[in-house]
Design a protein around this nucleic acid. Sequence first.
DNA 1: CAGTTATATTTCCGTCAAGTTATATAATTA
DNA 2: TAATTATATAACTTGACGGAAATATAACTG
Lengths: 104, 104
Amino acid sequence: MNEDKLFEILAEPNRRKILDYLRARERSVGELVALLSLSQPGISKHLRILRQAELVTVRKDAQQHLYRLNAEPLQGIHDWFEPYRQYWTNKLDDLEKQLDEEEQ
Amino acid sequence: MNEDKLFEILAEPNRRKILDYLRARERSVGELVALLSLSQPGISKHLRILRQAELVTVRKDAQQHLYRLNAEPLQGIHDWFEPYRQYWTNKLDDLEKQLDEEEQ
DNA sequence: CAGTTATATTTCCGTCAAGTTATATAATTA
DNA sequence: TAATTATATAACTTGACGGAAATATAACTG
């Protein structure tokens, strides 16, 4: 799964919410339907996309399908931001420097 | 500009490329047109969106409009990833631990 | 086995974003 | 001032996405 596709997948707010909910623990489809305000097919559709991106894994327990977070693919996207971090970090440094100077 | 909107804006590959190019230095619209394979109106359209999100600023030099990166708004999105970082960080720790054990 | 529960898939529809072409605006130059 | 250069905006088209409703599949229960 390439960077473009991953960004696109994460651009959908409900999908980000699903991932957020899965951070705590694995969840059944029904739980997610209850948590988000979306129809069951809507949830399943998003889960399929997350599955294909390997952002989640499933295991079956009787009729229930339990989804678990797999955060690894996020690392790639996270890395895109790395070169930009220095900008707000520097800005912060500047502020600190300014505050230090004001103390004199 | 809220998180949802920012994610959506960054989901577009050409917009990310524009930001990437602006990391080095400010650029005119014409330069960006030359760098990306998009029509001039296409570039201008993306620049407008980036401007509204305050991800870029403009200054005018004669006919040229020079765009400069403003990375600050990215911080908000970057923060979304923070709670997920431990997952791949832990995975890395596990690997290191495993490697250490293998050395015995 | 019939009915029920849990989830997935299909189909259809409306919306919206991204691209292009054409046009407008603004500054420069001959 | 007319022509040219640089950029922005408008109008239009098209494709893809997200949502709901309907249907299919699979497992459980009585």
